[in-house]
Simulated assay, not measured.
Amino acid sequence: MSQLLLWDVDHTLIENSGVSKAIYSSAFSRLASQLPIKPPITAGMTDRLIMRNMFVSNSVSDPGWPRTQAALQAAGAELQPELREVGYVLPGVRKVLQEIRSQAEVIQSVVTGNIVQNATIKLASFALEDFFDLAAGAYGGDSEDRHDLVRLAKARAERLYDAVFDEKNTTVIGDTPRDVEAARQGGARIVAVATGVDSERELRAAGAHVVLRDLSDVDHALSVILGR
């Protein structure tokens, strides 16, 4: 049976060291012709929701999603050099991805609040993009509600691989309670990693099946993620 792994990006695969918030602020400034007074709040939300909240909190008219997405893409490209300089791959991640890639029946993709262009930039900044079938993923431009993304990624993977993906063979790996909730509502198992701002206790309270401190114990992480 094929197995689908859906990875979050920020604070799960990589640490962006504040560059994500800089992208939102830069995109806002491009659209509003002013710096934001109220900073972006992320907390595992999608790009659509983060930017909409920024417009509301700063009392700026929403210019519409097409313009907002274009501004986010431009800001992401502009800040890629800074991301490469200050960001990094989290402990154990590259080795875990390499080991999983050797499993013939395992498909790896992403479910992330980032728009697809910026998710790709972030992964490519650290040579991680080739581990994933990005066409089977779901992104912050697809829906404002993160809960929709797991269901959408499963549907895309089913079309691409002519397989059925349900709670038995789909796993989300993420670092926030929103990742946990999205997996549970989207019909997937969740492996939470406490590599973001939320603690192991908070992730368990959100309903995570399994919580790892990080992926530095590669053998244990593989066993947990692959359900073995």
Rank of each mutant, 00 (worst) to 15 (best):
G76Y: 07
D179V: 05
A22T: 09
A221R: 07
L215D: 04
A22R: 15
V191C: 08
I41C: 06
D47R: 05
A70H: 05
L5W: 11
A104K: 14
D175T: 10
S33K: 14
L90E: 10
A43G: 11
A75W: 01
V19E: 06
A70Y: 00
T176R: 05
R159W: 01
I190Q: 05
N16I: 03
Q185D: 05
S61N: 12
E99R: 14
R84Q: 15
T120Q: 14
M45V: 02
W65R: 11
E167C: 07
H147F: 06
A22D: 13
E105V: 00
M1C: 08
L83M: 09
S102Q: 15
V150C: 07
S2L: 11
A163R: 12
E82F: 02
Y88P: 00
D162A: 14
V96S: 11
Q34E: 15
T120Y: 14
L222I: 07
Y88I: 01
S109N: 08
L90K: 09
E105H: 15
K38D: 13
A205G: 01
I173E: 01
K154C: 02
Q34A: 15
I107S: 00
L35T: 14
A221I: 10
E181N: 09
V111A: 03
S26F: 07
P36M: 09
D198Y: 15
K122S: 14
L212M: 10
D47S: 04
F28G: 08
R151P: 00
N114A: 04
R159H: 11
A183L: 07
W7K: 06
G140Q: 08
A206Y: 03
L212T: 06
R84P: 00
T195F: 02
F126P: 03
P40R: 03
Q108K: 04
Q103D: 08
N118V: 15
V211K: 09
R30S: 12
G64D: 04
D219P: 03
A206F: 08
Q80K: 14
D148F: 05
G141V: 00
T171A: 13
L83Y: 07
S223L: 01
V116Y: 12
A135V: 01
I121A: 00
I41G: 12
G174M: 05
